[in-house]
C-alpha cells in the first residue's frame, strides 16, 4: 500500500476538521523525522497522511514571561538567543542540524525513548500542553501528558497545538549522557529545576529521559530534596532514590542495569555542579 492522499492543511482549524472527518485512519505528521523513516522502511503503510508543516503552528513568542511554542516549530528555533538556556542546551543535544531543521518541538513529545530529549527539559520546566480538536480545546500539564509507552492523553480527534513553558524561577541544569558527544541516542537524559530559599531547596523538579516508558519525574527523589541543603549526603541519597525509582530498559545502546547506574552517577554530578552555582 502506498499513500493515496496527502493533506497539507493551511490552518489549525482546517487540520482539526480533517481529523474529525477522517478519524484515526488519518496519520498525523509534523516534521516527519519519525514517521517518514517508518514509511520508507515499509513498517508504516498509511493510506492517508496529514502533514502539519503549513498549518500555521510554527512560532515562538513570549507571553508574560512564559515562552509559547507552536507545536510544529522546528527544534532549530530553540537555539535562538531569547529561548530559555535550559531549552537551548537541550535542543543543541537533540539529533543533528538537518534533523533539527525538520523535526518539531511537538513531535518530540511523541517519540519513543531513548528519544525525547527536549521533552525531558520541557518536563523539568513544568510545560503545559495545549490540545485542540474541532470545536474545543484543553490544556494539560506535560507531567500528565504521557500514560504509557507511546501513549498519551490525546484522543484520536485531537492535536497538540502549542506548548507553554513558564519562565524558570531557579537553578537549572541539563545533561544528556550518551555514547558519543553529538548525534547520539541517550543512555540517560536529565533536566533539573531547583528553587532555593537560602541554601535549602524549596522546590525540585527532576526529569529523567531514556530510563522509562516516557520522560518521567523522579518524585521520591524530588521529595527527598525539599527542605535540604545541596550537600554531599543529600546529593548521594537523592541520586540513589532516583536510580531506584526510574524504570530503565535494555536496548542496543545500554542495558537497564547500566542506565540505572548512570542515573545515579550523572544526577549526582549534575546536582553537585548545581550546588556550587551562585
Amino acid at each position: 500500500m502506498t499513500v493515496q492522499s496527502y493533506y497539507l492543511p493551511r490552518s489549525l482549524a482546517e487540520a482539526t476538521a480533517l481529523l474529525a472527518e477522517h478519524g484515526p485512519s488519518l496519520l498525523v505528521m509534523a516534521g516527519g523525522t519519525v514517521v517518514m523513516p517508518l514509511i520508507n522502511e515499509g513498517v508504516s503503510t498509511p493510506e492517508k497522511v496529514m502533514g502539519l508543516r503549513r498549518a500555521g503552528l510554527s512560532y515562538l513568542r513570549r507571553e508574560d514571561g512564559a515562552l509559547v511554542i507552536g507545536a510544529t516549530t522546528p527544534l532549530t528555533r530553540l537555539l535562538e538567543p531569547d529561548v530559555f538556556p535550559l531549552l537551548r542546551e537541550a535542543a543543541r543535544h537533540t539529533a543533528t542540524w538537518s534533523i533539527r531543521n525538520m523535526g518539531t518541538v511537538g513531535g518530540n513529545l511523541f517519540v519513543p525513548p531513548p528519544a525525547g530529549d527536549l521533552a525531558v527539559a520541557l518536563l523539568a520546566l513544568d510545560a503545559q500542553v495545549r490540545i485542540v480538536r474541532a470545536g474545543g480545546e484543553r490544556t494539560v500539564p506535560l507531567s500528565g501528558f504521557w500514560t504509557g509507552f507511546m501513549q498519551t492523553v490525546l484522543a484520536a480527534d485531537e492535536l497538540v497545538a502549542e506548548i507553554r513553558v513558564p519562565e524558570p524561577a531557579g537553578r537549572v541544569a541539563f545533561r544528556k549522557f550518551g555514547r558519543k558527544q553529538a548525534n547520539t541516542p541517550a543512555i540517560v537524559t536529565l533536566a533539573v529545576h531547583l528553587r532555593m530559599v537560602g541554601d535549602r531547596v524549596a522546590d525540585a523538579r527532576l526529569a529523567l529521559g531514556a530510563v522509562g516508558p516516557h520522560p518521567l519525574r523522579a518524585r521520591q527523589a524530588e521529595a527527598a530534596l525539599v527542605g535540604r541543603p545541596l550537600d554531599a549526603d543529600t546529593v548521594a541519597a537523592v541520586s540513589e532514590l532516583a536510580a531506584a525509582e526510574c524504570e530503565p530498559f535494555t536496548d542496543a545502546i545500554a542495558s537497564d542495569w547500566y542506565r540505572r547506574r548512570m542515573v545515579k552517577v550523572q544526577l549526582a554530578r549534575l546536582l553537585t555542579a548545581m550546588a556550587t552555582e551562585v
Partner: peptide, 21 residues
C-alpha cells in the same frame, strides 16, 4: 546525511521530506 540538500538555505535530509512540503 548523504541526501542532504538545502531548503531555503537550511540543510535538510531529502529522504524524509515529502516533495509537497
Amino acid at each position: 546525511g548523504s541526501c542532504t540538500v538545502l531548503v531555503n538555505g537550511e540543510p535538510m535530509v531529502s529522504c524524509l521530506l515529502p516533495v509537497e512540503d
